[in-house]
Design a protein around this nucleic acid. Structure first.
Lengths: 196, 196, 196, 196
DNA sequence: AATGAATGAGGTTTCATTCAT
DNA sequence: GATGAATGAAACCTCATTCAT
């Protein structure tokens, strides 16, 4: 087994242990036992417990970041609606595909400590800004309602996160496509039908 | 100072310490120093660290639970829209009013350990069921769109939580009424304006 | 037992353990076992292992520093020779009185690490400067031979340290007064009697 | 590179690392990195860390031991004074020539652990006995003052060690010949000129 | 012979909780 | 009831040494 494989082996097992027990309850001993290596071996590959956790979260950030595609408004071959759905689908897919890291991201990584909080916030802000920029674009094209794009972005993110939170924490079972449709439809028309 | 006061004094200071440092970084020493009592005194009033944290969270649950009013569809004096807004307003108000506990609820209490996760989930499910029931009611009255009420509830909760998360974590500054309006408008019409 | 007593109790036992085993072989467990306290108690009174060792050495520095008296050349009631002997006597006495710390000073504290080396050197330089100043005084009064006072000081210090080293390490047995006489006589006339 | 060369290469680099960091702070990693060999290679040439350190010290013992010449009192061609000076010169030279091992001998090897202490003491006793025997010889020839030859030996050793300690630890700069003269003159007449 | 990945014993330190005063 | 000194379990990490390649 070469270095990269060994590293990966430890990383994956650590992910599972973190997902199962949470950051603090996950002991180095649990991780090395799961990975089937000696305690010292762990420290050959990772600085410390915090570092491996951070790497798991960082990789997830990257994976999610890569899932997002730029919406092409000029391309007549694909409708904007289809492209937006595709984006939602890809993000939801990335999260569903690896429930362990999703659980880590949405639960264990939250409130770990102030430094990690900043990291998380910074990731969500980044995502938020990307989305916000798209929304502002959409507003000028008349396909996004006028209004506070920043708020739109936050609420969209929140809706998505909450669904995924229930999926990974409660085993809420919805097929990926169903989730995509629900989110899309929610973003399109909300659900209140009141004459004010 | 009588027992109840002393207890309250410790509780409030613990809240601030938890909010500032997070659960694990908050030491009993920090709490008793903030409260100005001896270490042993803490244990006269609370079982252990976990118990005081749980009490803080439980109180918040109660406070938020009490903020919710039943929507009266038969009362002609108050429109349904107004009542829904009022509900959103009361919940947002309860969260904004005490940012320290809100931060604890949305950050520190998340992913603390499996047992606490269950508690949190159970609270959110409770809230979700209440909301869901209202939505199903609304559907039969034609003021809520047909569709998956459970999903509606989750996404609504997520949107609200995410706004409040940014408010308490990043100091996002929006007046309470503005938040209420944004949420209401989001629930009413979403923001996508695409002809599919 | 009050705080100061408890501190002293740990300090004295630590001194014995360090003297017996040397710095690195002395485990915190050995110290607390000797002192009859719990492991945590140790850390209530001392920052860490290094700190207690440093305190032991520092106290010895102080004790030895206080043993030195200024030589009064103007006082006709006490001859200079008597005063010098008195100084040697006091220093030798301070070292013999507490063989454990003397052993620590002359053996365990040596070469502990670069930072500690600087501390030691700084102490010996201080002592050396004091002695050197006295010698230069003495030279102007004609009671110290002309020559390199700095060297005189170093060699004197070395002779004294070496005797004490053998006393505490090998149990070399000489009465204090005998040691004083030997040093004094050595400093007075050396021992080589060669016509060059 | 043949076995002996490789061994020497590791030995010299280990010497430098020990001299720079001290025994405990010198890691096997530092040594093999300095020597440019793999970690496992180290253990092909040396039993363990302690063994290589011991070998460095032992070689120094040998080197110094070999520097000492027997004083010939019958040889009219070389005065006893010249022969004594020559001995001091050779020892000081051996120490100055390799400051790294001298520092190891006078600092790092001191107080390493009880076993090593015995080794050191045993070396110094050996040297001391040699010197003592010469002094007793000298006393019977009238060229060494009557008195405790054992003490003379210890103090001489101490004076020499202390000078060298300051040379290697503080970079005290004296030409070799100057050191020799100072020691010789100190042994010849001390420096106190007091009428008791 | 050389390598360097793997090992795991061992030691320091932290901190929630207890309990004698 | 209040105190705070004492406790000791528990967990992280280091690093000398081994051994398969």
């Amino acid at each position: 087994m070469d270095k990269a494989e060994r590293r990966q082996q430890i990383l994956l097992n650590a992910r599972d242990v973190f997902a199962k027990r949470g950051y603090h309850a996950a002991k180095i001993d649990d991780i090395v036992a799961a990975a089937g290596v000696a305690r010292g071996t762990f420290y050959l590959y990772f600085e410390d417990k915090r570092a491996i956790f951070e790497e798991i979260v960082d990789r997830t950030f990257t994976r999610i970041g890569m899932a997002v595609l730029r919406v092409e408004t000029e391309d007549p071959s694909r409708s904007v609606a289809a492209q937006i759905k595709e984006n939602i689908r890809r993000i939801v897919g990335a999260l569903i595909e690896d429930p362990a890291t999703t659980k880590i991201l949405l639960s264990d990584a939250v409130g770990l400590d102030p430094a990690f909080d900043r990291k998380l916030l910074s990731f969500y802000e980044e995502i938020g800004k990307l989305l916000e920029a798209s929304l502002i674009d959409g507003q000028s094209m008349g396909i996004v309602a006028q209004g506070d794009a920043h708020m739109f972005a936050i609420m969209t993110l929140g809706a998505l996160k909450e669904i995924m939170y229930h999926v990974v924490m409660r085993g809420l079972e919805y097929p990926q496509e169903r989730i995509v449709e629900e989110i899309f439809s929610f973003l399109s028309a909300g659900y209140l039908r009141i004459q004010p």
